[in-house]
Simulated assay, not measured.
Amino acid sequence: MKNPKTAREVADAIRVRVLNDEKPAGEVLNTLTELMEEYGVARDTVRAAVNMLASEGLVRMVHRRGVVVQDRVRRRRIRRGQVVTRNPHTGYVFPATHDPGEKWEVHGQPFRSLEASPPSVAEAFDVEAGTSVLRRRRVTSPAGEPPFQLVDTWISPAAVADAPQVAEPSTGPGGYLDRLEEAGHGPISWREITRVRMPSPEEAKLLQIAQAMPVFEITMTGYSGRDDQPLEVTVKVIPGDRVEMCSDLVRGETAAWPVTPVEPE
């Protein structure tokens, strides 16, 4: 393409360079200034072009470095089920966001801390927004791949008071859910909600994605079997270029085949 002028034309030209592996993942393709000079366009045009490519998961802007080439990850087709099972050694197993047989790894160290509760968590626990709530955080991915998901588990202050071990580095066999149920909250039940949104700057940094990349947010709330009150809220944040949600549709009785002829009135 000669002398691209619009943001989309600049994006098309840069995309070709990225897909042709001009630079390996993690390397700087160009600075914004260099791209402005190369394509003879204004800074705003270059920024718009880079944002288009960032939303596709091809590049991201890194402060004081420039336009960095992203890892091209395998997109996974996820069939989200509704059945919770149990592993006798590790505890509850929830509908997966990946192949259960695939080996996964943690990026950095999982950690726990008292954090100001976001509005949705505060509402679930019936506390004021900003109240300090225990958060357990980890970033995971298939072995050898870039970060796939950021997982935050928030545990209500009342639940921590009932089962103090959930705030310890090791929660013991079966994890924090077993400790909560042993404290009188079993059997726990869960509700899951999925939505799409844009990532926060912190989430984008931890997941190594551009802020222009939409993310899936899967929120699972666990309810006490004793009083039906929310005990824990687990939020998974997954970059939009990592997954496809897939469901098998089922015919209802009125959609049975072969079709029953309708008698004329």
Rank of each mutant, 00 (worst) to 15 (best):
L32V: 11
L150V: 08
P201I: 09
V196Q: 14
G57L: 08
T260M: 15
R80S: 08
R75I: 09
R135Q: 08
W257C: 07
P88T: 04
E202I: 08
V59N: 00
L180N: 07
N87S: 13
V93P: 00
V62S: 03
H185M: 00
A49T: 03
Q149C: 11
F148H: 07
L180I: 11
W104T: 06
S55E: 05
V196N: 12
L177H: 06
Q229G: 03
V67A: 01
L58N: 05
V196W: 15
T97N: 12
G108K: 11
T131H: 15
L53G: 02
T6D: 07
V68S: 02
L150E: 11
G252Q: 02
R64T: 05
I155H: 00
I188K: 00
L53F: 10
T85Y: 11
K205F: 06
V262H: 07
G40L: 04
H185G: 01
G240Q: 14
V10A: 12
P199S: 09
P88V: 13
V16N: 01
N87K: 06
G186E: 08
G144A: 09
P164Q: 00
L249Q: 10
L134R: 09
L150T: 03
Q229S: 12
G40P: 02
H185C: 02
A204W: 06
V262S: 04
N51T: 04
P199T: 08
E128L: 07
L177M: 10
P199F: 06
Q70N: 14
S117T: 08
E22D: 14
E202V: 12
N51D: 14
T153D: 03
L19G: 05
A49Y: 04
P201T: 14
R191K: 03
R138G: 00
A11L: 05
E244L: 15
G108N: 14
V67W: 01
P239S: 11
R77Y: 15
E203A: 08
V250D: 10
I155M: 13
D241Y: 13
K5V: 11
E123T: 09
P157Q: 13
A13E: 06
Y39V: 04
T171Q: 10
A49P: 04
M36Y: 03
G81Y: 07
R60C: 02
G101W: 15
H107K: 11
D152V: 05
A167L: 01
G91S: 07
I238H: 03
R138H: 11
E182W: 06
